[in-house]
């Protein structure tokens, strides 16, 4: 019977074969929570959402960008709060004022 293992600050069912190495227990985390962008869940239903933080608008607050498998990129502007909160997610526009597109697929 596989026993629950207390790691990362929350109970995790069990470690599978892929986690052959010891978990780095020097880092403990609270149970994960979904990030919001305004009133919506950030990155919901995007194809393999990949987050990055960068002050896109130069206002001194980090914004959160979500790139995806298709090559499209959105940005949710940081509100400058602590902890961080973000506004509505919108396409990141390029220098031509069109949505930036890396044509990933």
């Amino acid at each position: 019977m596989k026993m629950p293992l207390i790691v990362l600050g929350c109970t995790v069912p069990f470690l599978g074969e892929a986690a052959a190495q010891a978990v780095d227990t020097s880092a403990k985390f609270a149970a994960p929570k979904r990030v919001m962008a305004g009133a919506e869940l950030l990155g919901e239903k995007r194809a393999y959402p990949s987050p990055a933080l960068h002050d896109v608008d130069g206002d001194g607050h980090l914004d959160i960008l979500i790139a995806d498998l298709m090559g499209s990129v959105t940005v949710a502007h940081g509100k400058g709060t602590t902890p961080m909160t973000f506004g509505e997610e919108k396409p990141l526009l390029g220098s031509d004022k069109e949505p930036l597109d890396f044509e990933n697929w």
């Binding site: 880092a27 403990k28 985390f29 609270a30 994960p32 929570k33």
Partner: peptide, 11 residues
Amino acid sequence: RTSFVWLYERI
């Protein structure tokens, strides 16, 4: 099977 973005806050 749905995608989201998650925060793991270090404690």
